[in-house]
Amino acid sequence: MVPTYVVGRLDGSETGSYLTLDVGGTFLRVVFVELLGQGKFNARHKKYRIDEGLKVGEATLLFAALINDTVGTLLAHAYQHTDTFIGLGLGTGSNGAYLEQIDRITKWRGDRQGRTEMVINMEFGAFDNERTILPFTKYDRILDQASLNPGEQLFEKMIAGMYLGEIARNILLDLKELQLLFQHDSSWALDTMWSFDTAYMSAIEADATLELENTGRVLETIAQVSGSTLVDRQIVKTVVQLVGQRAARLSSMALAGILCHLGLSSTGPIKHVAIGVDGSLYQFYPGFEKDIMDGLSDILGSKVRSQVNMGPSFDGSSVGAALAAVMAGSK
Rank of each mutant, 00 (worst) to 15 (best):
R217C: 04
E220R: 11
S195E: 08
L262R: 03
M193I: 11
C260F: 09
G244C: 05
R217W: 05
I204M: 11
K271H: 03
Y200L: 08
L242T: 07
S265C: 09
L230N: 09
G216V: 13
L262T: 01
Y200A: 12
A247N: 04
R249G: 00
E213G: 13
D207G: 14
Q234D: 00
E205M: 15
V231T: 11
G263F: 03
I235C: 00
S265A: 13
G268Y: 10
A247P: 05
M201T: 01
D207L: 14
S251Q: 07
R246E: 10
A206C: 13
R246L: 06
G244F: 07
D232H: 01
I222W: 12
I235M: 00
V243K: 12
S266N: 15
I204P: 12
T198P: 01
L250K: 06
L250E: 07
S251R: 01
G257W: 00
V236Q: 01
L219R: 10
L262A: 02
D191F: 08
V243N: 10
C260P: 04
G216P: 13
M253W: 11
A248G: 02
T229I: 08
L230R: 12
T215P: 15
H272V: 03
L210Q: 09
N214T: 14
G263C: 04
T215R: 14
S266Y: 06
A223W: 13
T238C: 02
D232E: 01
I204R: 12
A223E: 13
A256Q: 06
V236H: 03
T221G: 09
L264E: 03
V239P: 04
G257E: 01
G227F: 10
Q245A: 09
V231H: 07
E220G: 05
S228G: 13
A203G: 02
M201F: 07
A203E: 08
P269E: 05
L255N: 05
V218A: 03
A256K: 06
T238A: 10
K237S: 03
V240E: 07
V239T: 02
N214E: 15
R233G: 00
A206L: 13
L219H: 10
E205H: 12
A256R: 05
A256S: 11
V243F: 09
Y200T: 04
I204F: 12
E211Y: 10
G244R: 01
D207N: 14
V239A: 00
S251I: 02
T192L: 13
V231A: 11
M201Y: 02
G227R: 08
I222V: 15
M253V: 13
Q224A: 15
L230E: 12
K271N: 04
G263S: 06
M193V: 12
D197F: 07
L264F: 05
W194R: 11
L264N: 04
W194G: 05
G257D: 04
L219W: 05
A248N: 05
Y200C: 10
L250P: 09
L212C: 09
G216E: 10
T215L: 14
D207K: 13
L264G: 03
K271Y: 00
R249D: 00
T209M: 02
G244A: 08
S266G: 15
A256T: 07
E211F: 08
L255I: 09
G227Y: 07
V218K: 03
V231R: 08
